[in-house]
Design a protein around this nucleic acid. Sequence first.
DNA 1: AATGAATGAGTATTCATTCAT
DNA 2: AATGAATGAATACTCATTCAT
Lengths: 234, 234, 234, 234
Amino acid sequence: MRIPPRTPLGSVASVTDKPDRPDKPRRRLPRSVREQEILDAALQVFSKRGYRAAVVDEIAELAGISKPMVYLYLGSKEGLFIACVRRESARMVAAFREAADAGGAPEGRLWAGLAAFFRHVAEHRDSWVVLHRQAPEQGEAIAHELTAARRSVMAEVTGLISTGIADAGGQVRLGADDADFVAHALVGAADSLTDWMERHPEESPEATTARLMNVMWVGMRNVLAGEIWVPPAD
Amino acid sequence: MRIPPRTPLGSVASVTDKPDRPDKPRRRLPRSVREQEILDAALQVFSKRGYRAAVVDEIAELAGISKPMVYLYLGSKEGLFIACVRRESARMVAAFREAADAGGAPEGRLWAGLAAFFRHVAEHRDSWVVLHRQAPEQGEAIAHELTAARRSVMAEVTGLISTGIADAGGQVRLGADDADFVAHALVGAADSLTDWMERHPEESPEATTARLMNVMWVGMRNVLAGEIWVPPAD
Amino acid sequence: MRIPPRTPLGSVASVTDKPDRPDKPRRRLPRSVREQEILDAALQVFSKRGYRAAVVDEIAELAGISKPMVYLYLGSKEGLFIACVRRESARMVAAFREAADAGGAPEGRLWAGLAAFFRHVAEHRDSWVVLHRQAPEQGEAIAHELTAARRSVMAEVTGLISTGIADAGGQVRLGADDADFVAHALVGAADSLTDWMERHPEESPEATTARLMNVMWVGMRNVLAGEIWVPPAD
Amino acid sequence: MRIPPRTPLGSVASVTDKPDRPDKPRRRLPRSVREQEILDAALQVFSKRGYRAAVVDEIAELAGISKPMVYLYLGSKEGLFIACVRRESARMVAAFREAADAGGAPEGRLWAGLAAFFRHVAEHRDSWVVLHRQAPEQGEAIAHELTAARRSVMAEVTGLISTGIADAGGQVRLGADDADFVAHALVGAADSLTDWMERHPEESPEATTARLMNVMWVGMRNVLAGEIWVPPAD
DNA sequence: AATGAATGAGTATTCATTCAT
DNA sequence: AATGAATGAATACTCATTCAT
């Protein structure tokens, strides 16, 4: 009579005490809405863990539904990821292009596009992480999709650079290849600077853009103007 | 253009060192050698698949040993990855610093360092991929190690930028914060350009470096000289 | 004389409940039921092999399900073992206490409790073996759980001994410490006698209890009455 | 130059830093001595972890030798365990018998034997744990060996009880079966009391023995004298 | 007599995916 | 439309045991 029984006398209750059937009634939502909710959840999880480490259970739970629903709607983990990538890629390009199109002159377009990029990433970090921070080779289809997504961002930038270069004129002739090079440099710099921004929340996306323009665009302009840097004679 | 695994001495394996030894009698190596071979194999696999998707069996097989040896020597998959990261990080920093130290004037140091970087990445793509293309949050220890490795590369670059800026003088004063910003931009650009280089094998690391210097360093120099870019009035 | 697994209701499975259902279509049971079946299987395997040597596959197979179900419901081998220990401990204490409470006078309570113990062990040998025949130090959590389980049995016995002693009165005063000592002796004796019983199936649990009472309780009574044994002068 | 290099410039040392060959020179010992040292180590480890959870590496390390030596001398983990059991069993029986033989009259022999038992267990807890606290069924040979060891202890006790009973005479006739029963009770009680002793270090082995004699032997004596306890009429 | 190097055969645990309702 | 129940197929990690020196 010293130690109280762990379970009522004589009964032997389930040790884990999970009910057979939880009483939380599920919402009925139209397919299109559900699908977006699932993608929202997936985005978070894929962004946090990466494709491989992401677990479908977690996505389903975060979306507030059961796992079979995820499979019913998106087919497979891979399908889920690809859908995610497509949506986020489209969003990103849309944001970029929209801003650029409102930017006026070529230089203004580049500025507006980059600013939009930094704004978008600041607001949708997950999006950027899912698109650009995945480990390589997670399967044919995924690699293909990621390549496409990244290429589409790169294409936007390359386009702006090209027109910017053409507009700036200058003595030096730069070709498509150079634009591609600069676009790579610019996108890479921007990618890396998203990390910098995280540690400098006081810096607005516009301020960051201005800094970057000063470093890279001023260089471009002067190179076009003939100020070519050559390595020191060894 | 796969790079053969490096020997423990850090040099690229000589061409005479063909892996055509008969299948089994390669056993019985001293610990220090085996260990490096395992790290060589791990580097390849982690680089190809990413941490999560990498399978220890594959690493063991590639190293030509059985799985238990991997665990005996490196403790765990995580330990293996961390050891990999440490070794590659040290190699990368060493290559970078060694080159910079031989570079003479500040501007020359920056040039030499960057050139060394591109050379190193061209020769050791796996190394760079393992250090900079992992999905986020694969566990506390790994995240910590990767952060440290990346920081150490960034620190090298920041150092060169700082002295470069100080040396260039000019009307505009730039602080430590600016050097950090530029370092981020530079490292990001360089990262992205490793992809560009893969598609432009005709371009030597030095040529790539020159291009990058023209885009970014010329910009820096002119900004220091007072040519500040400001966003167009909205 | 293997005992068939018990149903979740705690009673011994009725004889009509033959396991001759066809092999596979037994699936789709509610969680609470499956859980108990898993514990039934685990009890058998842990009892037969001990914690370490028990293999989860075997438990799953015996329970007629796949391994992931075991992990889904009980979390881990350790969790499985602990759940087992808790259930069996509760059952054992319940059996003991129920019987004692029906035993009338203190001496009768002790008798009834011990008889219930031997009855319970005879019917549920696995239960006793899992609780009392595990190798030491199989991990913090397990050691803790086993200690708790064993303590709870010991506490029951100590309680009965104490009231029995108090009731018997006598010239010699015995304290709580003495009750504890006797309880240890009694439980140990009973434990050991479960082996004896296995080799003497003709002896009913009640007969065994009577024998034990004669050896131990008669001694107690006479000690209380002043018949103290002292070691021979050396 | 901000972050000190993790390894000397340019070198890429082993990450685990375990030397290929430790410089601790091993002692040369004659086989018989080595064997005992190994058994000492094995005893500790088996006692601490149980047969299954014990790891041969740990035993070898504790014995200060390499694993192959263990196998060279004892053949296998099972052989090691069995050798352990045999040695400890023999020691225990020897201690018991020696003491009993010096005990004089039958009652004195029982007393002396039990006292020796408690003394032995107090001093050699590992021994007792290895012999009596192993999980069941760790393989045919082991089960057989443990049974033999336990039987040999039991036999000693049964012998003393028998002569004690015969000596005490009395009205009631007790047979070999009764002695066996009492021996089981006594050994079980003693086993359990080894735990009690651990928590009562102030109690000497002799004092513990006296307590036990009072509980059990006084009972025996009175039963022999005709004071038979019968269960209360239900 | 003694050991560092090496492995075959497990074993716990996880996870994407499907089924029955 | 939605879910609880269920699993095949990995995958990290361990350990008793042996080989070559």
